[in-house]
Each structure stands twice: as C-alpha cells, then as structure tokens.
Amino acid sequence: MNITELNSFVVQQINSGVVIIDAEYNIDLINHFVVLHGGVKKEQAKGQNLFSLFPELPEHWLKRKLQSVFTLNTPAFSSWEQRQYIFKMPHSRPITTTNDFMAQNCTILPIVEKGEVKQACIIIEDATDVCYYQQQLNVAMNKLEKSNQTDGLTQVANRRYWEERCIIEFDTAQRHDRPLSLMLFDLDKFKNINDTFGHRGGDQVLVELAAKIKDLLRSADLIGRYGGEEFGIICPNTGGKGAAELSERIRKEVQMHKIMFEGQAIFVTLSIGVIEISDQYKSYEEMLSRADMALYQSKREGRNRVTLYKA
C-alpha cells in the first residue's frame, strides 16, 4: 500500500470515531467506527448535513463549539466528565455498565487550507471504561466516607463526625445570627443494665434507643454517639425552648419504650442537658461543656429529666 492508502486504512480502522465536516456542517468523511456505532450508512453520510444525519446531537451547543474552531482556528474539547456523550451511541459493554450510552471524549480540530479553516475534524474516543471505573470508585469512596462517619454499633454519627458537624453548625449559626441548640444525654444507670443483662443486652439497648431517638428527630438534626452510653444531638435553627421541648418528648418516649432482650423487658430512662447558642461562646466546645453541666444537674436532681442550661 502507498502512504495515502495506509493513512486511509488507519483512519477507517482506528478504534475511535472520525467525522470531518465543512463550514456548512456538511459531512465530508466518516470512518468505520462512526458507521458501526452510529448506525448510519456510509453512502448516505457523504455530503449530508451533520445535524440531519445525527438528529440527537446538541445542535445549538455544538454549533457554538464549532464556531470557535472555525473562527479562532483553535481546537475544542469535550470530556465525558462534563458531558457524557456528544454522539449518542450504544457501547460494547452492555452488562457491566450503568450508563446506556457510550461515554466519549471528543476533540474537534481545525483543518486549515491557505490560511483559512475550511473543515473541522471531530474525533470521538470511547471513554466508557474510564467512566465505569470512575463511577465504581465514586460509589466506593462514598461508602468509605459514610463508614468513616458512622458509629459501628449504633449506626448513628460517630464522635469525630458529630464534632465536625458541631464546628460547621456553630460557625454557620454565628455568621448568620441564627439559633442553634445542642443536647447531651446519658442512659441512666447503664452499668446496672450491663451487669444484669450482659454486654450483649447493653449493646441491644444502645442500638434500639439510638434508632428510636433518630426517628423522633427532624431531618436537619444530627444525633451522634459521644461516648459509651452518652449521645449528643445538634439542632440547627432551634432555640433553647424548642430544643428543651424536643428533649422532653424524647425523654417521655424512651421512658415508655420497652426493649425485649432474651424474653425479658428492659426499660431505661435518660438524663438530658440542653444549651442554646449565645454570643458569649467562642466555640462549640464552650457550649458542650455547659451542656454537660446541665446533664449532670439532671442526674443530681434524680435522673430521668431535662435541664436547660441557664447562664
């Protein structure tokens, strides 16, 4: 084969799409890849308008892009990460991928003749594999992030994540001058439960209570396991009065909730400390230590009660 035949062989057989159009968007050349995946006939394509041969192309957008190639004599690019595909084509991995169409990286190159851009060459690369692995990776990363934030036993936020959220909510509340309340609560006489029912019994109590309380919260509230049998709740956009009412509801619900463990009923109560934000606190830690003081006051005064911290 001579060099022209070799060039044409490569263009036709390469595993990427090649479409060449003129300034009126009429097709001068398409290669085998486009014929195969685009479901068009080669003999129909030549001379036909790009947008009538591929009616699903994003016409206005692509024309603007092609204009930049023709007027500026610069290449243009499109990445699957921003736009999954330009040419709607099925891909060759139907089972493993979640996307219906071939992910594509496209390059549009100006073709210059006598100092003027006369044609544009669109090169379509199949990026379905990359796209698929990236999606798998994202799913895995999300799971990992979630598990990094979650307490293994109770499935509520762990202490690290809960405190991270405290910092964010504290800053937001201060910046926008919005209310914010924190609650700390402790299971009363948890040691007795462990002594009577064993650690498995104690664990079950923690798991059931965490789930029960989570159900009582609004979507913006966040419960986290602060220590062994100690939990915290962040209540954004909530003043002390509202948070104390919510605490009271939680206290009552928990008191009436029967937990069954190996045929025996377990009842538990909570001591709760509540605090609302005020200008005098420089950090969420200052709020937390006062919530802790309120919690201990609840304990001292006979447990199974709510105390709202008063400065």
């Binding site: 892009k65 243009a76 690019f77 499109s78 921003q82 736009r83």
Partner: peptide, 17 residues
C-alpha cells in the same frame, strides 16, 4: 446547555489555545 464546569473548561481552552 452546559454546566459551569464545562463552560469554564471551554473558555479556558479558548484563551489558552
């Protein structure tokens, strides 16, 4: 038609090239 990231990539490519 195009999200912000795509437009930013586009205008950057135009400026650079």
């Amino acid at each position: 038609e195009a999200n912000e990231n795509e437009q930013l990539a586009d205008i950057s490519s135009i400026l650079t090239t």
